[in-house]
Simulated assay, not measured.
Amino acid sequence: MLIFVDAPLAERHKSTLAAGAAGDSFIFRDELPGESEQREALLKADILLGNPKPVEWLEKAVNLQWIQLYSTGFEYYRHIKIPAVVTNMQDYYSQPCAETAIAGILSLYRGAGEFAALKNKQQWVGHIIRPALQTLQNKHVIILGAGNIARRIEKILQGFDCTIRLYARRSPNAVIRTTTELEAALPAADIVIACLPGTEETKGLFTREMIAALKHNAIFCNVGRGNLLADEQALTEALMHRRIGGAVLDVTQEEPLPAGHPLWSCPNTVLSQHSGGGSTSEYEGIVACFLENLAAFKNGIPLKNIVRFDKGY
């Protein structure tokens, strides 16, 4: 098999791939000199490990039998028509994403950003900040979604004795099922955490009216997809004018977020730059998942984490 790898792997990861797939040939995109050579290599490949761009290359990659994405999201490839089976990482990033959400919320509640700024200025004003610090305990939380990330977040929040309600249209674990019910529930929420996948159903789901419904000290957190917000400017305005308590945003509508974008200047805002799924062992796990699926592929065994384009996950 000829395997094209379009992923930011270190040399140790490449060595692990070579050792785990004896008899197969690997071509690594980052070792090729230019786009023409990279595209040519992809068009020859039987298997792809990675998330190639431009995505249009895949339309010509008729030799591909299987694509293993190293992400959970696959919206960039949703409309590409190729015969290859596509797998993703599904639950792999759920725990770090959940911890990113909770870490961001706690940093706002416990003043971590303000203390970091004071440290840089070597200024001691702890007695002034103390009355403004909040705790996560007993907070009322609405989680948008009922999938893997949502369940991990829910489990963590249970340790803080939070009241938790899930929004999802079809999940039996959800108690909020319609956008009308969601908008009615928002004024009571201390925290709203979004971890919905990027589908046509979720695009623009969280509206300007929903942002306006949040109470003055509510925190909005998004570790799902940036296009969940129908109007990102409405969130920016709410933060700038301190009409809500803060935001934790792992994702935004435009990525990378350009210099000068208003979100960079918003108070009480944590921007984790779509790194919520990162960890020290991230790519070791990706390589291990690929090799496990490669063995299954060669032996005619069903692959893990097959993408269901019709369902959006």
Rank of each mutant, 00 (worst) to 15 (best):
E183M: 10
A194Y: 08
P258M: 09
D231H: 10
I193R: 13
T236D: 00
R243D: 07
A184C: 11
L263K: 12
R177D: 03
H216L: 01
E209V: 06
T202G: 03
N222G: 00
M240A: 07
G278Q: 14
A185G: 03
K203M: 04
P267F: 07
E232I: 14
L263Y: 15
N217D: 15
L196Y: 15
T163Y: 06
A230L: 00
E254W: 05
S281K: 12
A189K: 14
L263Q: 08
E254V: 13
V248S: 06
P197M: 06
K215Y: 10
P256H: 02
T179W: 05
L196D: 08
L182Y: 07
L228K: 00
A247C: 07
C221T: 15
K203F: 06
T180H: 11
A189T: 12
T163W: 07
P197N: 06
V251N: 03
H261V: 06
R225A: 00
A234K: 03
I193V: 15
P267G: 09
I164A: 05
P262K: 09
D231E: 11
C162M: 09
G198E: 14
G260R: 06
T179Q: 12
N173K: 02
G198Y: 05
E181R: 11
L249D: 09
G224I: 11
N173S: 13
P172H: 01
A189L: 14
D190N: 13
P267N: 03
A168R: 00
A174R: 02
N222I: 10
F220W: 04
E255A: 00
L249V: 07
A212V: 04
I244A: 01
L229M: 10
A168E: 07
P172M: 00
A230E: 13
L166I: 01
L166N: 01
T236H: 00
M210D: 11
E209R: 15
T207Y: 09
L166H: 10
Q273I: 10
C266M: 13
N222M: 02
T199Q: 09
L239S: 06
A238E: 09
G198V: 01
H241R: 08
R225V: 04
A247P: 11
E254I: 13
A184F: 04
L205G: 08
G226Y: 01
E200W: 12
I244C: 06
L214C: 11
R243K: 12
F206Y: 15
Q233F: 04
T180G: 08
P187Y: 05
G246Q: 05
R177K: 04
P262C: 10
G260C: 05
T180F: 07
C195M: 13
L182F: 02
S272N: 09
H261Y: 08
F206H: 05
I219R: 08
S171K: 00
G277K: 04
L271K: 14
E181P: 07
E181T: 09
G278T: 14
I193Q: 14
T280Q: 08
A259R: 04
R225T: 02
T179V: 12
G224A: 07
A218F: 06
P262D: 08
E232K: 01
Q273S: 14
P267R: 05
P187M: 02
W264T: 12
P256W: 00
L182T: 04
I176M: 14
T163P: 01
T252P: 02
I164L: 02
A213H: 03
R177F: 03
R243P: 08
G204P: 12
L186S: 12
P267V: 13
I193T: 15
S279H: 05
Q253G: 11
C162R: 12
A185C: 11
A213N: 03
Q233H: 12
